[in-house]
Design a protein around this nucleic acid. Structure first.
Lengths: 256, 256
DNA sequence: GTGAGTGTTTGATTTGAGTCAACACGTGCC
DNA sequence: GGCACGTGTTGACTCAAATCAAACACTCAC
C-alpha cells in the first residue's frame, strides 16, 4: 500500500555528534531556555546520533514506531498526513531548530509522514532514554510538553487559515511566517529561497497550484514581492501584513 | 477586549466526587485502560472536585493559567480559538469522557476557549498534583501524552477536512463522527440531539450557516437523514459514508 | 546540442459556496 | 393570546477558486 521507510542512510549508531550541543548554533531552540552548561552536556549524552537525510528521503512515516525525538540541525523537511479516505495534506514545514517526532508519543506510532525537502541533518534522542533523566532535569520533560502544546497552537492557526482566509490572505500569511522564521534563525527576513514546490505550498494552504501561481504573480504585479522560481524577495511586508484579516466582516468579533 | 472568565459556579473545593471514579460510567475513557482498583482510588485522590457549568458558561478562556486538567462527566462543551487577526474558529466539541485542558500544558496558559453548550459537569485534576504521582503510576503520565497525541491526530483530521472536502462531505463526516462518538458512549448511533447551533457547526466545518442548512435539507431530501431542528436521525449511514472521498481525483493517491 | 519529463505559468470557462434578503419557526415574556 | 427576538430555512444572485487546457521553462540524461 505504501512505500516502506527508507533506511539506506548514514546512521552513525552510538557516535557522539562532533562539536556537540554546546557549539551548535541551534541549541537555543532545541533545548529549554536557561539550561546550564553542565546539564546541556548531560542531555547531549542521551543523544543517539546525528542522521543525514537526502532530499526526498523519509525520516519516518505514519504508522512507524514512535521511539525517537528529532531536532533539525540543518535543512528543511515537511510533514504530511493521509486520512482514511485517501485525502492527503501537507501539515507543516520544519527548519533548523525545530523539534520533531512527538506526534505519536504515547500512541507509540507516528501519525504523520516526515520527509526531507533538501539534504538535511537531524539529531536523534531515543524517547526511552528520557526516563533516564534525573528528577532535577524535569525541565527537559516539561519543555517537551511545551513543544507539544506548540504543535497544537500551530495546528490551530493552520485550521483558522484553512477555514476562514481567502487565497490571497493565505499566501500572504505563509510568506510572512517564513520570513519571520528565517529571521529567527539569523537569516534575511526579506530574501530567501523556498525549499518546497508550488504543489506543497498549495496542499499546505488548501488551494490549487494554479491559484498559488496566480497569487505569486499578482503579488509581484502589486510590487509586494519579487519572485523568480523559488527565490523570493519581500518588498513590502507592511502591505502584505495588511492583506490578512481583510475578509473579516466589519461587525465586531464575538468572543462567546 | 475579552469578557473575563465567569467563576460564578458551584465549586465544591476539596469535596470528593460522590460515588468516585470507580462507579463513574466514564472512567474507562478518562483513565488509562487496565488501571487496577487500588490505583484508580489513588488517582481519584488527586482530583480536586467536580465543577458544574451552566449552558454558555466558560470553563476557561485563552490566556487563562493552565493548571488544571478536566474530564467531562456529563454534558457537552465546545473549544474555540481566536487568532491575532480576529478570526474565530470552533475547533471541536467535547462530550462525556473527553479529557480537556492540556492545550496549554508547558506553556502555562491556555490556547483556546472552552464553553459549555448545555449544563455540564466536569472533574478537575490540578496539574501540580501530577508530580505527586509515584513512579509506578507513570502509566498516568504516559496516558496524558497519549491524550495530547490524540489532540494532534484529531486536529490533523480537521485540517484535511477544512482543506480538501466539499461542504457535502464535511457535513457527512461530521454527522458520522458524532454518530460514532454517541455509540462509544452507549447511546444510539442513529438518533441523537445536536447540542450545538448551526453557527457552531458552520464555524467548525469552515462553511457558512446557510450552507449547513442547505446541506441538512439536501440530505433529508435524499433520505440520508431525518432532521427536525436539533434532532437528527441517521437513515442511511452507508450512503453517508460513501459521500466522503467523492471529490478525490480518480488518479491514485501519492504517498510521497 | 536534442529530447523527455517535470514543474510552473497563464488563459477561458465552470461551479460550489458566499452574500444578500426575505421569510418561517420556536421560545420565552408580558 | 400576541409580540419580540433569536435561530434556522430558502431563494436569487455573485464571485472566488477550481477545472480544463495549453504553453512555457527548467533539469537531467544522452
Amino acid at each position: 500500500m505504501r512505500a516502506p521507510t527508507q533506511h539506506s542512510i548514514t546512521y552513525m549508531a552510538g557516535a557522539r555528534p562532533h562539536g556537540g550541543c554546546l557549539t551548535c548554533k541551534m541549541h537555543f531552540r532545541c533545548l529549554p531556555r536557561g539550561l546550564n552548561e553542565r546539564d546541556t552536556v548531560r542531555v547531549e549524552g542521551l543523544l543517539q546520533t546525528r542522521r543525514q537525510l537526502k532530499c526526498g528521503e523519509y525520516l519516518y512515516q505514519a504508522g512507524d514506531r514512535c521511539d525517537t525525538i528529532y531536532a533539525v540541525k540543518t535543512g528543511c523537511l515537511k510533514t504530511h498526513v493521509c486520512d482514511e479516505h485517501g485525502y492527503e495534506q501537507v501539515t507543516g514545514f520544519q527548519m533548523a531548530g525545530d523539534l520533531l517526532g512527538m506526534d505519536g508519543i504515547g500512541l507509540r506510532a507516528h501519525d504523520f509522514n516526515l520527509v526531507a525537502l533538501e539534504d538535511s541533518e537531524v539529531c536523534a534522542l531515543p524517547t526511552a532514554r528520557l526516563d533516564e533523566l534525573p528528577p532535577e532535569l524535569e525541565t527537559i520533560r516539561r519543555y517537551l510538553h511545551e513543544v507539544m502544546s506548540g504543535y497544537i497552537v500551530r495546528d490551530h492557526n493552520a485550521m483558522i487559515m484553512l477555514s476562514k482566509m481567502r487565497a490571497e490572505e493565505r499566501l500572504a500569511a505563509f510568506l510572512l511566517d517564513l520570513s519571520r522564521r528565517f529571521a529567527a534563525l539569523g537569516y534575511s527576513s526579506s530574501e530567501f529561497n523556498l525549499r518546497m514546490s508550488r504543489e506543497d505550498i498549495g496542499s499546505y494552504l488548501g488551494i490549487k497550484i494554479e491559484t498559488v501561481s496566480r497569487m505569486f504573480s499578482q503579488f509581484q504585479e502589486r510590487k509586494l514581492i519579487d519572485v523568480k522560481n523559488r527565490h523570493v524577495c519581500i518588498l513590502d511586508s507592511v502591505r502584505l501584513q495588511r492583506i490578512i484579516g481583510r475578509s473579516l466582516p466589519s461587525k465586531q468579533r464575538r468572543v462567546g
